[in-house]
Amino acid sequence: MTLLDIQGLSVTIPSPAGPVQAVRRIDLNIAKGEIHGLIGESGCGKTMTGMALLGLAPAGAQVAARVFQFDGIDLAKSADALRGRRIALISQDPAAALNPVLTIGRQMDDVLRTHTLQPKADRTAAAVALLAATGLPDAAKLLKRYPHQLSGGMQQRVVIAQALATGADFLIADEPTTALDVTVGAQVLALLRQLVADRGLTVLMITHDMDVVAAVCDRATVLYAGLSVETGPASAILTRPRHPYTAALLAALPDAAPHGQRLAAIDGQVPASTKPISGCAFSPRCPAAMTLCHTVPPPARVRGDHRWACHVAEDAP
């Protein structure tokens, strides 16, 4: 069952240098209970997409979409109402997401108080249960601690517990492991996977890291220059990418080439977000580009539940 259905989302931000197309045209379709990876490099619009879903696009930004629905509700009208009730954010830096001068207990209670009518004692019990559910040991003692007394991994678990406390069933996780050590990040991902299974959550996993996609994502969408260029099952994206950009991104990973061999770097740069795009956005950097690619927007290709937009890659590899 589709939980999130977005078609043709664009976010335009006015600036002194002319309107910035932070998101040009993104389609995103997420089924209930799945972890959906939103993959892209800096400036591709992945964070802005998340902010638009939360109704937190910067002031003055124009958010437009043909379809912009969450569980049948129009996000264009109701994003503010859904945020902190059904949609919650887990950001990259947990230390910044927590208030440094309030105890964990106080911050959990602040969330619970706005969402339930329970008496204080019940809320405290709920807070302990939620913290324990995120794998934090000694949850009762933790209530009296301050964020700086916790490690980064523990802080991120507290942020996740807060998200659960809102009662949200859709989590937007924006690079949740990037600020953490590799081993700690792996544990946080395992926790998210488990919460999805136990509580029927749905997660939009914004990331630049293919390892994260491989570890937890069921499906994934690849963004380039504010456009969704490929979407499909995570395993297919990682092992049988259709779009040349996805393929190039995977080939640029340091373990994609034998030790000491040159890596397949992508030449050139992402097009400026202030300029219009003619043809395929990736064509100036694409090794397979034809004349057609530079002028005509690429057609949508569909093979089962795998979709991509490319003139060249009709089917194989």
Binding site: E41, S42, L249, A252, L253, G260, R262, A264, A265
Partner: peptide
């Protein structure tokens, strides 16, 4: 750096 740029820098260092 981004992955694609990281590859450029690693290539440069190897060269």
């Amino acid at each position: 750096l981004d992955v694609s740029v990281q590859a450029q820098i690693l290539n440069l260092l190897m060269d």
